[in-house]
């Protein structure tokens, strides 16, 4: 009987899921430290491990999601904290404010509208188009924006993680191909499409690129919040 009670507790308590999520993430961090490969993103590794366990134990996503809600809760204050890198980089802006604002705003318009239109033209439907719209912003903002505009937040999170990883892996090579050589322009471009995950690669390559990538990530979050209310009703 005692064994049965313990088993019941184990399968209904949120504790094992919280432990699994944090431990899988930490394992991902160690793997990144050890290999240094841009594909070794802690979030990707954690996702693969946690998804496998959720699948194998036959746990529903709703149960998992409510068990780990304490982890998701920190998305909010962490989003607020994105003001800190912006605050640190403000001194770099001398003489650059206009090019940067125009560039980031244009990037947000192109990213949101082409994401929505490509999905719609290829028959992905309205829900998927709304979900694709905010995927260039940093993941917590993509989740929030997707919810605000009636997309699927969980999928927007995954799209954001995937384009972030894409930027970390091939971003610098694509910028070379596009002949974008100015360090500040490279950083701004990578941060605008691959947010924090791209920024970690930019930081690894060059401090100026990294700083501007971080700045661009914060500004892109704001710009996307401004253009979504205009573009979504227009295009969806």
């Amino acid at each position: 009987m005692r064994g049965h009670d313990t088993w019941h507790w184990l399968t209904t308590s949120p504790l094992p899921w919280i432990l699994l999520t944090v431990a899988a993430y930490e394992a991902g961090r160690r793997l990144r430290e050890r290999t240094g490969h841009p594909l070794a993103q802690p979030v990707l590794i954690a996702l693969v491990v946690v998804c496998l366990v959720v699948r194998l134990t036959g746990t529903s996503y709703d149960d998992f999601s409510s068990a780990t809600s304490i982890i998701s809760f920190f998305l909010g204050p962490a989003t607020v904290a994105l003001a800190i890198p912006l605050h640190r980089q403000t001194h770099r802006l001398r003489g650059l404010v206009l090019p940067m604002l125009v560039g980031v705003l244009a990037g947000a318009v192109v990213s949101v509208s082409s994401g929505i239109l490509l999905v719609r033209v290829l028959g992905g439907g309205e829900l998927l188009a709304r979900t694709m719209g905010p995927k260039s912003t940093t993941t917590p903002v993509a989740i929030a924006l997707s919810g605000r505009f009636h997309g699927v937040s969980e999928l927007s999170a995954v799209f954001a993680i995937l384009v972030g990883t894409l930027g970390a892996v091939v971003g610098p090579a694509v910028l070379d191909l596009l002949r974008i050589r100015e360090r500040r322009a490279r950083g701004l471009a990578l941060g605008a499409v691959s947010h924090g995950i791209g920024t970690s690669r930019a930081l690894h390559d060059d401090p100026v690129e990294g700083a501007f990538s971080g700045l661009s990530m914060g500004l892109t979050a704001l710009a996307t919040c401004l253009v979504m209310p205009v573009l979504v009703p227009l295009l969806v």
Partner: peptide, 30 residues
């Protein structure tokens, strides 16, 4: 930051079927 969106990302499991059905618009759109 990456830790905090792991739970949301796991939500992809609930949409694998939809993603497979719309693989082309999802990939090309992204």
């Amino acid at each position: 930051l990456q830790l905090f969106f792991v739970p949301a990302g796991v939500g992809v499991l609930a949409y694998l079927g939809a993603l497979r059905a719309h693989a082309l618009p999802v990939l090309v759109g992204m």
